[in-house]
Amino acid sequence: MLIAYLRSILLYLALLVTVRLMGKRQLGEMEPSEFVVSMLLANLATIPMQDPALPLSAGLVPILTVLALELILSWLSLRSIRIRKLLCGKPVILIEDGRLLQRNLKAARVTLDELTELLREQGILKLSSVKYAILETNGQVSAILHAADRPPTCRDCGIAAEEEYLPCTLISDGKLLHTNLRISGRDERWLEQELHRRGCAVSDVMLLTVDRSGSVCFIRKEDTP
């Protein structure tokens, strides 16, 4: 058990260093420590699960050790910028003012093909239209276009846009959600009036939402007349 504990600590740290050295583009959408934890947990759980001859402690001790290390390191990375940089790395600028920073591209081990692919995924075809392209710590590329290449906004066009609010679900699959009704600032009397106007009861409603502006979305259940 003690050996399992010590080996889990060593292997966790070794994997963390390895994943950091592998580079950001290997990570998908996870931070290095999250990637290591998900990779380790999947394997740690399967070995004692598949082999009933192994004691349960052989699986539990490493899993709990990895969990404890992840809790400690995530707390430390929240508190210290230095540790955060050490564990997660820092974003790398790949394009600045439309100019490809080849040294950074090499350092991040991202090929030009990969960069153009990641930009195309965001609907960007011309490198020159990119003001900044940043390789984030989770391996994603954030691209910011030059002001002239950005799609116009309502403000640019001088159009008064209507604000949108988060809708609050009041009835879901025929069930009234009392807490949401209270949060939305409506009461049961208002709801009764709404339902009466549509000629149905609570049980006939598939979905009824309301937002702060008073806009109601109503969907009736299909099997009701």
């Binding site: 050790t65 969990l67 400690i72």
Partner: peptide, 13 residues
């Protein structure tokens, strides 16, 4: 979370 992590490490040790 730090206390939980440290507690768990101490408990396991």
């Amino acid at each position: 979370y730090l206390m939980l992590g440290l507690g768990l490490m101490a408990l396991l040790l």
